[in-house]
């Protein structure tokens, strides 16, 4: 078997195993991965045993190790920048939408409040207004009005919160990546 054939076989087996694991998760059948994963490993190892050319070439090992290290460096740097930028949407006041509340006395003596959302970092005004809502009678505010108000405020910040969540996820993934790298580094450092 040629090396290319072996790589194609490994790819097909990996795809089939991934599909089976995915299907089993969706179907709730947890017996399939237990059988599919070891079976996939056995098939790949059997294919590897039939490869008639060199697999573990030292030059390729060195190329891969350098490529992996460079990839790690690029991913960590770009990922850290992206994580900080995205998370700053949660922390930063200028990047958050401006929400104002104005109290009005109605003709019948009741109080109403107009809550308005303006573009982040802008001066509140008609040009920068995104949306607004009014609570007709503050003193007669019921549960539905309160929920509407809460949802309104939450929606205003949801985009920033989602970005912050994405930033936090990237940050955690980077830390996990670095921890894995550190663990392997210590392992090989002790081994050699």
């Amino acid at each position: 078997m040629k090396r290319f054939t072996y790589l194609v076989c490994s790819l097909i087996v990996a795809c089939m195993v991934a599909a089976m694991v995915g299907w089993s998760m969706a179907a709730g059948n947890f017996l399939v991965p237990v059988i599919a994963i070891p079976l996939g490993i056995i098939v790949v190892l059997a294919c590897r045993a039939h490869v008639d050319v060199v697999i573990a070439d030292e030059r390729e090992k060195r190329i891969r190790s350098k490529a992996a290290l460079r990839t790690l460096e690029v991913v960590v740097i770009v990922g850290a920048i992206a994580a900080i930028i995205l998370y700053s949407y949660v922390m930063s006041i200028p990047l958050a939408p401006i929400i104002t509340g104005k109290l009005f006395i109605n003709d019948d003596g009741t109080q109403s409040m107009t809550i308005a959302e303006y573009k982040p970092g802008s001066v509140p005004g008609p040009e920068t207004l995104v949306r607004s809502t009014t609570i007709r009678d503050l003193n007669a505010m019921n549960e539905t009005d309160a929920i509407t108000y809460c949802t309104y405020v939450r929606e205003g910040f949801s985009e920033n919160e989602n970005r912050g969540l994405a930033g936090m996820t990237i940050g955690i993934c980077l830390l996990a990546l670095l921890a894995t790298f550190g663990a392997f580094y210590l392992y090989y450092d002790r081994k050699y």
């Binding site: 060199v54 070439d57 030059r59 390729e60």
Partner: peptide
């Protein structure tokens, strides 16, 4: 390459 156990590229 075959005798020393590496690929021709090496």
């Amino acid at each position: 390459a075959e005798l020393v156990g590496v690929t021709r590229n090496t």
